[in-house]
């Protein structure tokens, strides 16, 4: 199992990268009143057939040739369902995939959210040809990082991996998370 929800998010979003997505939208919504954390990862990649959607939830199925197990999606599903939450995948060939996991916020078996800012940073900086829209919500408050908006402001000739830019991205994610959730231990 992964030690943090944010590592599951990184792992499952890497599937979207490999599905050839040009846009990946990630939403993390922490709702103390509803006692839930909802994670949605949506991409416009190659999508899957109904049969493949069933197969990716099976730990002993993978399309890889390097090993015989595929644990990413089963880990995420198990982590959510073991907290009284839910898990679903909607996918359509040629259109894309939506993965949604709901966790019981106060459930004793829920792993911590962990360093979600670092997950988003890694995805954005190391996949510069893909656009990301990341939304973090805590109760009524929220902030968004939209790389399309960033490219608009920055121009297309400056890479996100330039030190000045990557430091900004890191600070943006960390500062705004803190202002959104007030440093809550999630």
């Amino acid at each position: 199992m992964m030690p943090e929800i944010s590592l599951n998010i990184l792992d499952v979003a890497e599937n979207s990268v490999r599905a050839g997505a040009s846009l990946i939208e990630i939403t993390v919504s922490v709702q103390p009143d509803a006692d839930s954390i909802t994670v949605i990862i949506e991409d416009n990649g190659c999508g899957m057939t109904k049969e493949q959607v069933q197969q990716v939830q099976d730990p002993f199925f993978t399309t890889r040739t390097t090993r015989k197990v595929g644990l990413g999606v089963p880990f995420f599903k198990q982590a959510a369902e073991s907290t009284g939450g839910s898990f679903r995948i909607d996918s359509e060939t040629g259109k894309g995939t939506v993965v949604e996991a709901v966790f019981g916020l106060s459930h004793i078996d829920r792993m911590p959210l962990g360093d979600i800012s670092s997950t988003i940073y890694t995805l954005v900086v190391f996949n510069s040809d893909i656009d990301f829209v990341y939304t973090y919500k805590y109760g009524e408050k929220q902030f968004v990082l939209d790389t399309r908006e960033m490219r608009e402001l920055l121009g297309h000739d400056i890479s996100f991996s330039e030190p000045e830019v990557s430091v900004f991205i890191k600070e943006y994610l960390e500062t705004n998370r803190l202002e959104t959730d007030g440093g809550a231990d999630i």
């Binding site: 090993r67 890694t122 900086v125």
Partner: peptide
């Protein structure tokens, strides 16, 4: 991949970059 991330690859990648 899942195996790398679960074993701690994210902080390794970040430290190097």
């Amino acid at each position: 991949a899942t195996c790398g991330i679960a074993s701690g690859a994210r902080p390794v990648l970040t430290a190097l970059s």
